[in-house]
Computed example of a mutant assay.
Amino acid sequence: MKKVREWSKRKKIIVGTVLSMLILAIGYGTYQYIQLQNTKKVFEAQQKERMEELQRQQEEQDQAKEGVATIFHEDRINFLLMGFDKDESRIDKWRLFRPDALVMVSLDLKTDGVDMISFPRDALVWIAHRPGKDKINAAFYYGHDLGGGKTAEEKEAMGYQYVVDTVSEFLGNIYIDNYVAMDMDGFERLIDDMGGVDMYVERDGYDHAHGGVLYAKEGQQVLDGYQFLAYIRDRGTDVTQDEDRAQRTQKAFQVLYKQLKDQNMLSMLPKLLDNYRENVDTNMTLREMSALALYAQKMDMDSMGKHVIKGDYEYREEQIYFIPDEQARIDLVKKVFGYDFTPQR
């Protein structure tokens, strides 16, 4: 009888302990979820740290754009998406890869508004920290090879930084908080893991990077990872169709976002990206990405501002370049960020 009472007492202690731990775990999980929902709070510490670093850099600045003040908005989060032309089939052929898709996303935390700005990869721009111009997707090379990095990791980090700073300078020196870089294999895997993307294809699509094979017929259909990537990259055989490709990319991202939101998959996106570490680079923590994913659930992408850099193509020294329209550039900065600027170079 005594043993029964002792066991009953021990059982109560065990159950009580387990319940206490469970309550604590639920409480902590709820607290973390609430914290992540406050996107601005999550990024306050990050922005403070990076603002201090930015001020330090500007004080020491001896680069090509010396004296130019960087514009910082505490109620905006700007991040740059970079899609690199790298996949498994090219690793042994090429030494370096380029960010052929460049999209800057700006979130207005006051209005929950979002703007997306796409850059043609052949845009001729001033390269940050350098004295001259080149195609915008060459900025990674300048940072990687000439940015002063010693190790492979440092060289890659400098490559990303040069791309970020080049885009920043083009957009009136707006501060860019974060970046996410992904190669083609990672993007294909992400779409496949989502089960594909259901969207309308405007015309029969042919993959000219792989011999002109048909990748998708005209009409509504579910595109797998390969097809979705081919749709985004498609510019036919005309190298001057980058503006059309940029607009198609924005449309595709809008459809992708809506599908993720409708399927309640936005909160899973940071974890998916974390699974592709060999294909993805970012300066954001998993917590910061999770906060953004939760914030994205309340954004209305139907009212998103979609912008493509305006300009014309020209042949110069046997190279084709996209020459941005300077007035359109100034007007775009005014429209999206609300301030006037005069290009310094």
Rank of each mutant, 00 (worst) to 15 (best):
K9P: 09
K11A: 12
K12P: 00
S20V: 13
M21Y: 05
L24R: 05
A25P: 07
Y28T: 15
G29P: 00
T30S: 09
Q37E: 08
K40A: 08
K40I: 01
Q46G: 04
Q47P: 04
E49S: 03
R56C: 02
Q57D: 15
Q58G: 00
Q58N: 04
E59Y: 12
E60H: 07
Q61S: 12
K65R: 11
V68L: 03
T70Y: 06
N78R: 03
F79R: 00
L80P: 01
G83F: 12
D85Q: 09
R90T: 15
L96A: 02
L96C: 06
P99A: 11
M104V: 13
D112E: 13
P120W: 11
A123G: 02
W126Y: 11
A128R: 06
R130A: 05
R130N: 04
K133M: 11
D134C: 04
A139Y: 07
Y141S: 07
H144P: 06
A152E: 15
E156N: 11
M158F: 10
Q161M: 10
T166N: 03
I174S: 00
A181N: 06
M182Q: 06
D183N: 15
E188L: 05
G195A: 03
V197Q: 02
Y200Q: 13
E202F: 11
R203A: 15
G205M: 14
D207T: 12
L214K: 06
Y215C: 06
K217Y: 08
Q221V: 10
D224V: 04
F228Q: 04
I232E: 13
D234S: 10
R235M: 13
G236M: 08
T237L: 14
D238M: 07
Q247H: 03
Q250K: 05
Q250A: 04
A252K: 04
F253G: 02
L256M: 10
L260N: 06
D262F: 11
M268H: 08
Y276V: 03
V280R: 02
R287M: 08
R287L: 09
S290C: 09
D302I: 05
M304S: 12
K306V: 11
K306C: 07
K310L: 13
D312K: 15
Y315N: 11
D325Y: 01
D325H: 06
I330G: 05
L332P: 05
V333L: 02
F337K: 03
Y339G: 01
T342S: 08
